[in-house]
Amino acid sequence: MSALLEVSGISVTFDGFRAINNLSFEIGPAELRAVIGPNGAGKTTFMDIVTGKTRPDSGKVLFGERSVNLLGMTEAQIARAGVGRKFQRPTVFEDQSVAENLMMALKADRGPFAVLRWRPRPEHHARVAELASEVGLADHLPRKAGELSHGQKQWLEIGMLLAQEPRLLLVDEPAAGMTLAEREHTTRLLVDLAKTRAVVVVEHDMDFVRRLACKVTVLHEGAVLAEGSLDHVTRNPAVIEVYLGRG
């Protein structure tokens, strides 16, 4: 199985501080992967690089069957190529309704003139309703997103990601601030999603990672320290030393 995303040898330096140091990473087209590591290990910077927010000093990031290099593309182009990202803090457009938020995220031509002419058809409304019920917001469609609770905003954002139909999903600490039941729901959803697409989850919560039951990549000081099942990496002395040992 060839990789969907292939990151090789990237390095990035901020004012002399090496945030990412010759990092390589690979993920298949339908795979769930957890990325863990202590603070400052470079998890967020890694996601920033894949989504185009930060330019690495060296290395390459190839995506898809045709191995497109993501490094030359803008954030929007990368997103259109099929990379979705969920931020740690829920970022939804609070001044707009849940339906508008989802409608905006629906996969469609993103060019301004196409958007200007675009008017919702019944199937679009149906898709929005379907997505809303999937994330438990079916009753809240006309409400302004700003009025939702924190957890509901998380769900709305996940719904927007689903609407984008990405092939690679980068999720930053999805379980933060969720109730136990919501975590369960999230776990199920992520595992489901990973059946049809690649999902990378960055997480601190070991319990949550264990529940995902997937391959784990441990980052430390901007490089991969260990990779394998959770049990495998937690037995790795180096990992215990830098990460688990502290906790």
Binding site: T51, K53, T74, E75, A76, Q77, A79, R80, G84, R85, F87, T91, F93, E94, D95, Q96, E100, M103, M104, A105, R110, G111, P112, V115, L116, W118, R119, P120, M160, Q164
Partner: peptide
């Protein structure tokens, strides 16, 4: 009125997020 209006208001409120939705801000 339509999605265009939605997108530009979204740009006003959080343009980085709009970029990650794939819109060329």
């Amino acid at each position: 009125s339509g999605k265009f209006g939605s997108v530009i208001r979204a740009i006003r409120d959080d343009e980085a997020r709009v970029r990650f939705l794939g819109y060329p801000v």
